[in-house]
Design a protein around this nucleic acid. Sequence first.
DNA 1: CTCAATCTTGATAAAAAAGTAATGATTTGC
DNA 2: GCAAATCATTACTTTTTTATCAAGATTGAG
Lengths: 161, 161
Amino acid sequence: MKISAQEEYGLRCLVQLATLEENESLTLPQIAEREGISQANAGKLMWLLSKAGFVRATRGTKGGYVLSRPAGEIRLNEVIKILDADEISNHCESYTGVLDSCVHKGDCGIRPVIVGLHEIVQEALSNITLAQLVGDEAKVDATFHQIKRFERKIGQENLRH
Amino acid sequence: MKISAQEEYGLRCLVQLATLEENESLTLPQIAEREGISQANAGKLMWLLSKAGFVRATRGTKGGYVLSRPAGEIRLNEVIKILDADEISNHCESYTGVLDSCVHKGDCGIRPVIVGLHEIVQEALSNITLAQLVGDEAKVDATFHQIKRFERKIGQENLRH
DNA sequence: CTCAATCTTGATAAAAAAGTAATGATTTGC
DNA sequence: GCAAATCATTACTTTTTTATCAAGATTGAG
């Protein structure tokens, strides 16, 4: 249960675009430099994000990438879904061991946990927009404070049954 | 942000042990068969879980694996931590792109999100014990209901600001 | 004591993910 | 129209993760 390289870097590239003023844009070499990744890698990530409609690319001199929607309207759950090729729906087709289908097909005690966990993460991510990730660490951390506090409360309630 | 094969299968092997009565145990071939994975793979997983102290192994005829603690006292966050070689602490050393250290070292808008997300997942996992995963899907799903409801509430509150 | 059942462990192979390279297409400026 | 800048796309290489294999160690039964 960890974030993949593609998710991490893709998200960071988007955040770079979110910091731009109106009429500004970033080219692949610029994005690559700002995130410390290769231009080729940035190219692939931006291609993915472009296909998915998060960014708009223009070619030629003065070209580059811009967000296709305001940063405040792009929620992390959408972004992660694209970057992770996320398909919880076919979870049961993914981990079938040496067999053709999962041994627990039909009645499975693990599935609700996997699905539930996925929902929890999605829920948390859907409460964060790109715009909220712009700024210094202290500011972003503050934005998270609320969610964390809620989570802690849940934990305690559950422990008490 | 998805569960890895090792997490999934390792957890499932543990759940198998959790279903046992007192004085029962399972051998590698048995575990492998019940989870539809190869014996070699089961062996490696159980070795990991054994090293981490979740299970106790006995060799020789009549040998096998048993949980080393009651299923109700084994929380999923501990298990996942082992199976995932989970180290959120060195996240910033993991995604450094082509550089030696992350370009955002010191002040990073993404870090609070990654760390926060990790905490949310850990919190959710720490509320689930192995014992709660034993039984049919409907039962396990019911156990999750409470957490899910809470999550939904959080989502709404945050959308309202 | 010896054998068969069983776990242990490091080496190896296969699969998946990540990253790179190369070639092609579009746009702008001159 | 041509050249330079820029994105698009596919194929390839490397790295990491998964899975398997094989030889070793321990235990219990007879």
